[in-house]
Design a protein around this nucleic acid. Structure first.
Length: 160
DNA sequence: GCCAACGTTGGC
DNA sequence: GCCAACGTTGGC
């Protein structure tokens, strides 16, 4: 089983929005970066866990834990002309460019673990999130990194 | 709002 | 296939 970090702008969609929704599950749509797509398509498996990260926010940081709840399937927003973020005129219905997976909220962190706090933790020097210029919206997280961050957040690494 | 870093596009 | 120009991301 693998671990991930998924970025979102909370002004668009926050962990709280997901947590308070009926099924606590949403399609992770509108990913428009090939590297991020390939990770979702090829490496994510149902049951993997992910950190839900708030970017472009004040403060930025990890808000909670989600579980990958489906395999990859076609992202419908790529064909939706009214979806400003998602619409991709180059993508054809018989050969879709973009996929999504479902994610389900598992638990919130007791409080947001801020990026500034994450930067202070030991053992995370290789973490993708902390690399200079890193802006991948779907990132792999190692088991060791996962454990360090869960401990700092005060939650069990098994997310229960 | 700034701007560094990165990804994408398109002319050649 | 190179690479300059452009667009986007995202922390500060």
């Amino acid at each position: 089983m693998k671990y991930w970090l998924l970025k979102t702008e909370p002004s668009q969609f926050s962990f709280d929005d997901l947590w308070k929704s009926k099924t606590r599950t949403t399609g992770w749509s509108e990913v428009r970066n090939y590297q991020a797509r390939n990770l979702m398509r090829d490496d994510m498996k149902i049951g993997d866990l992910g950190f839900f990260y708030h970017s472009s926010a004040d403060p930025t940081g990890i808000a909670g834990i989600v579980e990958i709840a489906s395999g990859p399937y076609t992202d419908p927003t790529q064909f939706d002309k009214k979806n400003e973020m998602g619409y991709d005129p180059k993508s054809k219905p018989d050969a879709p460019s973009w996929i999504q997976v479902d994610v389900r909220a598992v638990r919130p962190f007791p409080k947001l673990l801020e990026l500034s706090e994450i930067r202070k933790l030991k053992g995370l020097s290789k973490m993708v999130l902390l690399q200079r210029g890193s802006r991948l919206s779907v990132q792999p997280v190692s088991a060791a990194e996962w454990a360090i961050i869960c401990r700092a957040a005060g939650v069990s690494a098994s997310a229960r």
